[in-house]
Design a protein around this nucleic acid. Sequence first.
DNA 1: CAAACATATCGATAAATCTCGATATGTAGA
DNA 2: TCTACATATCGAGATTTATCGATATGTTTG
Lengths: 100, 100
Amino acid sequence: MDELNIIDISKSLSNPVRLNILNWLKEPESNFPPHETVKHFNDGVCASYIQEKTQLSQSTISTYLSMMEKCGLLISTRHGKWSYFKRNEEVLRCYREYFE
Amino acid sequence: MDELNIIDISKSLSNPVRLNILNWLKEPESNFPPHETVKHFNDGVCASYIQEKTQLSQSTISTYLSMMEKCGLLISTRHGKWSYFKRNEEVLRCYREYFE
DNA sequence: CAAACATATCGATAAATCTCGATATGTAGA
DNA sequence: TCTACATATCGAGATTTATCGATATGTTTG
């Protein structure tokens, strides 16, 4: 992992809401209600559930999720009209290893 | 390590100059000239050497080093009129573990 | 195709950060 | 105590980030 990515990941992690999102996604079952059309959390949690939990505006959360995806922290998957987001554990591992 | 500290550490790490400083301090011998009054790097590197290497102003680097110390990333030690800075490996370990 | 809905993008404004020069503080030595 | 020097702090302007409402895009279904 190169330095540019480390900077962008660190920027994502330097905001409490974004840090919360990353933490909530560790255990979607206990932090979010079940999805209606998808019966599992294999691809993570849909954006609207995350937005609802944060109490910030839809546009803000969409921007946050997008920047977290761009730097690699999250993986997004589109199912119909919903976008699901889950943690990218491999990128997180690389980020940790950078500081070893 | 609580969330507040994670935020402040992430902020420190989200600036390329500060990230460089942290990396340089991994190997002071190969990144800095020897000190004159102190014959080792046991307490890290003095602020003026770091400032010189970054090419930023003295006040900027002093602020950077201070914020990196406040969040725990660095340990500072005063020897006479010089302040030495070294990595705080324990805090770095806690930071890494937070994301496991 | 039209309506409904989830998400993304576009300005805009307020707040925070970056970075500096100027100045203050602390320390060593004449 | 006076000077020199290393570091810290202050105040300010430029840049970036946070966050919003409005609007655009994409998807499903009647």
